[in-house]
Design a protein around this nucleic acid. Structure first.
Lengths: 228, 228
DNA sequence: TAGTGGTCTAGACCACGGC
DNA sequence: CCGTGGTCTAGACCACTAG
């Protein structure tokens, strides 16, 4: 019995040995299925997976071609700071520096599409790797989208983890950039003002509205690593 | 007629509205199919896709559960600088500042697993967005893995694009960090020495050996944006 | 060992899009 | 138009594993 993974392997072999060359039209699903002696659905699943991985380009009527410039995609798991710290072999800790209700800048409210009646919460947290500062986080939370957040035990669980576990979210954006440390960041991260810091801004949206906006400044030496 | 994407949407809705809460066992494929009035295979395809995206955890006999810590993966297409520039609505250009054969630092050779007999090539390129500097790139190329590179017309095609089209590659790593501009970087990127720059180091490996090592320093204002 | 997901099949119809 | 991929279906058997 030929499984779809066998079909995939065979197709991949032909691609990699250039038996099927880039840009070339490969057999139709039915022809390939007949040749291998399996059902068309099995071939479909195999070729669909290869197309998703960028090896093939498929179009109705036009057929399936070997991709000319396979675009490789890197996958980045959305970073949970505690996991980043623990992955480095250190003990994670955090200190809440400040938490106050109801103070979201107007510009931010506009960008997130929130009315000024939306109850908000502001938190500044210092994340620690052992006893050393790891990252400084400033966060606004929409209390409508994350009810109960203002009563969360933020000394025992980080704001991010509480939200991951307790608030529904559907999509968001990550935005990495390099920025000079402010005086405030420098003092907490243990570096001079102006030091180049990796900075992450993250918007997170629930099914209906923005849940939280975060800006994280990582201590010097931070690296974002991905495999392709 | 209910398609698998409809089933997926419905399941996702129940997850995001917490109708199905994290850790909870959801209906079996057969039950869900009966409820929605479609075939089990359709439900299977939908739930399998959601599991692949990290929303669900599936195990034979044990059933399907909503993922407790929904590990969202962001996908990042391997950045081709020309595409980054054009996506911003500008005209891409580049200037080769320096190209010399045979000078790869020993530390780098070791890290890539190359012998010191490996023929190499060094290139420094300034990438332009219109007339403004966009990024400065320093690159070493393993000529064994990319034969003909030393004869490539690098004035008309960038080193990266030539390699993408002419050298097979199988895997690699991306490493983003924030770093202060060197005097050299500052002079070419039009910013003071010490300015915080987003920096990318990329290793690329072919089927047998390292193909190229690159360090790209982006001009101030660069943002790496991902969707989740 | 029984329940659940994983997969294959043969047939059918549909949707897109070259021609 | 009509070929090709995209998908649905009903049924079947298999693989894994919790209880």
């Amino acid at each position: 019995m030929l499984g779809w993974e066998d079909v995939q392997s065979e197709a991949l072999r032909r691609i990699q040995t250039r038996e099927w060359t880039p840009g070339e039209l490969i057999p139709t699903e039915q022809d390939f299925a007949d040749e291998l002696g399996c059902a068309r659905a099995t071939v479909n699943r195999a070729l669909r997976a290869l197309a998703q991985d960028g090896y093939l380009e498929r179009r109705r009527k036009a057929g399936t071609r070997v991709a000319i410039a396979p675009q490789r995609m890197a996958r980045l798991s959305v970073p949970l700071i505690r996991h980043e710290v623990e992955a480095l072999g250190a003990v994670y800790g955090h200190r809440v520096l400040k938490q106050t209700p109801g103070a979201m800048p107007a510009a931010l409210r506009l960008g997130l599409g929130l009315s000024n009646a939306t109850p908000c919460y502001t938190i500044i947290t210092l994340h620690l790797s052992g006893t050393r500062p790891f990252a400084l986080e400033k966060r606004w939370v929409n209390l409508d989208a994350a009810p109960g957040f203002d009563a969360a035990p933020l000394d025992t669980i980080s704001a991010n983890e509480w939200l991951v576990q307790n608030a529904a979210f559907s999509h968001g954006t990550l935005d990495y950039s390099a920025a000079p440390a402010s005086r405030f960041e420098g003092s907490h991260l243990g570096c001079p003002e102006g030091t180049a810091l990796m900075t992450l801004e993250r918007n997170t949206f629930g099914p209906e509205a923005a849940v939280t906006w975060v800006r994280i400044s990582y201590a010097p030496g931070y690296h974002l690593t991905l495999d392709i």
